[in-house]
Design a protein around this nucleic acid. Structure first.
Lengths: 379, 379
DNA sequence: CTGTTAGCGCGTTCAG
DNA sequence: CTGAACGCGCTAACAG
């Protein structure tokens, strides 16, 4: 089957993006040497640009241009097609590490996330990865690292990313103790914060308006006629949770709601801890009739404890979570929750990165996106 | 504060592993030029090895050796310390892309996963990443990509990995339609399969004995005295689920259990689909008294549906899942499930990769690890 | 033990 | 429109 221009044009991008299904049959790959005009010393089985050029009786430069996305117009149409056809048949793949060395750009961005098991982080990360793959003329590859909120791991990760010469870094794992490490990194490459910010650190960020989210929940409780309510706060070291708490408390005061017990917090925002903290809620006097859990995991722990002890939700106790996770939607009693603006946050983070890479403009471009309350059966 | 040898030795590995907290103060970094003996043309703010060498009145090679892990013994102790101290104070970071180009090795491995939201995959991946970071003298960086079981995405990912010259590829996302793409990739670099295998493709793999897992569940049902049971199968395209089904059915026959209804399968192994399929289970005649769900997500969907309709678990219906996810442990009715050997699978996969990279030995080294049944309250 | 030399595979001048 | 030459930052081979 001869290659037509249509397939070649597909391959043009396919060479970089690999949409092309046909990378040359194994026969082609085995026999590519026979295209050589002169015998040339071949090190491995991997074809490089020099060899490809020799096989075509062209100079490397011409081949380089023909294969490139932005400079292929500098090459005659006929030559360009000939080069691309050969590259395709022979399974040529440009060596991106070599290209990076020459260009001074690796077309990679480091992504730091605290917990790969967290659905919200993953959702934001997916958006970022999708954007990075297609944004503008850029085709960036993400390097992903998980910190589990450990400072040493974070520093290790930053060092690795910097050593690999990433073009930028996005952290979804910022916490106060990382301030210095991130600022040091920002001296070398653009650093963008997403989901989590750091007090007093002015880096371009893409955030959720957590305070507004907390406020919405309190307003909702007030509208439902509750008098005594409480909140189970996530780790207090994270600004995210502090903001949710502040918004909730503010509106409680404004609406005449009493927070009892107050100061409830879990060390990790997980279901088991939500389960455990339930006893403290029930021990309070007066006992609250509604709980705001700072995320869905905690909320689910509370609901499971509620079920275990034979109480009913929302009749005996209303519960609202945060993040709108998949699980919240499929419970027997669907969980009321605050929908996190994952798409907006991810998109803004990737836009910031693209802009900063193009023109090292470190302007003050933080955006804060609003969440929205989803009232379901649990409240 | 002067640098003592202890800190320098830490930095020795810290240079690569960044355990060192102190990367040189900002003043150090700003003034590093003054260490230069001659003025040298400096392009960016980033210090390279040539400049570092000139500042120290040494040759690049010496600096390179002094900083390396395996060849630093070729350098005099005094010089070595001097080099490392300077590198540390000046915040020198070796350019890994350049090193890779020269060495013909990038010290990266591509990891392909179908779904970043899947706890089991993530757990295996974490193990792999931890091993890769510390295994032997190797410090490999993983490149992670998600396919969502899409062939084109998989091909794209493979191409990107290969273009970035990864030293090996680990796929936790194999499915039958990817056979050709993976085999083509295996022509270039070692390819290892984990968690999922492909029928008829002989690549070194690290797997779970899914059939044994299914068998355990059937034996458990038989021991509990059930007569009519059923299973809800995951996507039939995946060998994983086919094996679980086969093991379960085999033991059912051997133990005289009837599968009604049979042939129940969901398109995606998710909680919502588990929820939906529940109606079909209840409509069966005779109605089964126990369900084997091919993973915990499906099982949880079934349990939620059970709750919604007022049935009791395990009295009216026993349920067993697969994977031992966090969620299975914290439900009001803790879920019986099959514990997946994530550590063993991950460890074997990373060992395979390390071995294959060292000595391109493509020997037949697949291992299959046994899962174990965890009986909890739901059965 | 250290310096010298020679590339790794590309992209980008500058000529023609 | 194409070819020749240079160098990105590093490590490996070979001398000394």
């Amino acid at each position: 089957m001869p290659l037509d221009n249509n397939r070649l044009h597909k391959y043009c991008s396919g060479l970089w993006r690999a949409n092309a299904r046909h990378n040359g049959t194994m026969e082609d790959r085995a026999n590519w040497r026979f295209l050589n005009v002169n015998d040339s010393p071949i090190q491995g089985s991997r074809l490089n640009m020099k060899e490809l050029a020799k096989a075509l009786n062209l100079d490397r430069s011409t081949v380089s241009r023909a294969l490139s996305e932005d400079k292929s117009h500098l090459v005659g149409l006929e030559t360009r097609l000939r080069v691309r056809e050969a590259a395709m048949k022979l399974g040529y793949r440009t060596d991106l590490t070599a290209a990076a060395l020459r260009k001074g750009r690796t077309d990679t961005v480091g992504i730091i996330v605290s917990d790969l098991g967290n659905e919200t982080f993953i959702t934001v990360m997916r958006q970022i990865m999708a954007d990075l793959k297609g944004n503008g003329a850029l085709h960036m590859t993400p390097l992903i690292g998980e910190t589990r909120d450990d400072l040493a791991t974070t520093q290790d990760l930053l060092h690795r990313f910097l050593s690999r010469r990433v073009d930028a870094i996005i952290s979804l794992a910022a916490s106060d103790d990382q301030a210095e490490a991130l600022q040091l990194a920002a001296l070398q490459v653009p650093v963008v914060l997403a989901v989590r910010s750091i007090r007093g650190v002015e880096l371009p960020s893409a955030l959720c308006d957590d305070e507004a989210g907390g406020a919405m929940v309190a307003a909702h409780f007030a509208a439902r006629g509750h008098k005594f309510v409480c909140q189970v706060q996530g780790p207090t070291a994270a600004a995210t949770f502090r903001n949710r708490a502040r918004g909730f408390s503010r509106v409680c005061k404004q609406s005449g709601l009493s927070e009892v017990p107050s100061g409830l917090a879990v060390k990790n925002a997980t279901t088991p801890e939500g389960r455990q903290v339930f006893a403290q809620v029930m021990a309070a006097d007066p006992r609250p009739t509604a709980i705001f859990a700072h995320n869905d995991s905690i909320a689910i722990g509370l609901m499971e404890a509620l079920r275990s002890e034979g109480h009913r939700c929302p009749e005996d106790m209303a519960i609202v979570g945060f993040n709108n996770t998949q699980m919240s939607r499929v419970l027997a009693i669907p969980l009321s929750t605050v929908d996190y603006p994952t798409v907006e946050v991810g998109r803004h983070a990737s836009r910031l990165v693209s802009n900063l890479i193009e023109n090292r403009d470190y302007g003050w471009k933080t955006s804060v996106f609003s969440p929205s309350l989803l009232v379901r059966a649990s409240s």
